[in-house]
Design a protein around this nucleic acid. Structure first.
Lengths: 139, 139
DNA sequence: CCTTGACTTCGAGCGCGCTCGAAGTCGTAC
DNA sequence: GTACGACTTCGAGCGCGCTCGAAGTCAAGG
C-alpha cells in the first residue's frame, strides 16, 4: 500500500520556500551566505529547498525570534555539520539559550508591570488586576 | 520637627546618576542629546540630575528593555513636555506599547517551547514538564 | 526571434542604539 | 605653577541583521 521504489524529491524554489517560512528570499540567500543553510542547486544553479531545509529555516526563525545572535546560530549549525558527536555541545548551546530566553521573558514581564502601572496612573485600563503600590515620581 | 524654610536641591553628578541608574554616562548624554532628557546645569555647565531626572531615566530604561523604539519614547517625552492636556495621547502610546510587550512575551514563550522541545530531543533537561508531541524533522 | 520573469552572485547601504574619543574647560591638591 | 580628574561638546564609528539593487543567466511563451 505504500509508494514504489524511488522517493520523489519534493523540493521548493526560493520563492516558495520564502512563502512557506515567512522569511524573504533575500534573507534566505543571506542566511545561506553566512553559513546557516546548505541548499542544493538544480541543474541550472537554482536553489531547491527540501523539507529538512525548510525545517531548519523554521527553527532558525525561532532562534532569531528569541534573539539568539546569528553568531551563535552559526556555531550551532557548524556543530550540526560536524556530526553526531557534537550533540553535547549543541545541547549546551540550547540550554544556555533557554536560560537567556527565560531571563528575557522575566525582564519583559517586569517592564510590563511598570508600563501597566503607569497606564493605571493615567487612568487607562490594562486588562490586568493590579495591586497598586504608591510612589509616583511622575513623568 | 520638619526641616527649615528652603528645600535642599538634592542633585547628582553624571557619574553618580550613571551609577544609580545603571546606564553609562555616555548614554545619559546621548539620551539628552536626542531629547529624551532635560537636565539642569550647575554654574560650571555641569549636569545635575535631580530625583525626577533619575526617575525618568529609570522609566526610559524600562521602556528600552521592553524594546520601545527611541523614536516612540521621544514622542512620549515630547507629549510630557507639552503639558497635561496630552495625557490621553500618552496613555494611547503606553497602551500600544503594552500590547506590543504582551505580544513579544507570547512570541518568546512560543520560541521557548520549541527550544525546550529540542533540548529534550537531545536528552537534556529544561526544568519544565513536557507534553511531548512527535514530529522531529531533525537538525 | 525577442521578451518576460524568476532566478543567480555579490557588494554596498541602511536603521538602530549606542559607544568612543578628541579637544577643551574647570576646580582642587600639591 | 602644574598636574590631575571629572566633566563638557560633538562628530565619527561600530556591530548587528538584514535589505537592496545592479548585472547576468536561463527557460518558457508568443
Amino acid at each position: 500500500m505504500t509508494s514504489p521504489a524511488v522517493a520523489p524529491p519534493v523540493t521548493h524554489s526560493i520563492a516558495d520556500a520564502a512563502a512557506r517560512t515567512g522569511v524573504t528570499a533575500h534573507t534566505l540567500r543571506y542566511y545561506e551566505r553566512i553559513g546557516l543553510l546548505d541548499v542544493a542547486r538544480d541543474p541550472n544553479g537554482r536553489r531547491r529547498y527540501d523539507a529538512t531545509d525548510l525545517a531548519r529555516v523554521t527553527f532558525l526563525t525561532r532562534l532569531r525570534q528569541s534573539e539568539m545572535p546569528i553568531r551563535d546560530i552559526a556555531r550551532y549549525v557548524d556543530l550540526v555539520r560536524e556530526g553526531d558527536h557534537t550533540e553535547p555541545q549543541r545541547l549546551a548551546i540550547l540550554q544556555a539559550h533557554r536560560d537567556a530566553v527565560v531571563h528575557r521573558i522575566d525582564e519583559l514581564t517586569q517592564a510590563l508591570a511598570v508600563v501597566d502601572f503607569k497606564i493605571t496612573v493615567y487612568g487607562g485600563s490594562t486588562g490586568s488586576i493590579h495591586t497598586l503600590h504608591t510612589e509616583s515620581d511622575c513623568t
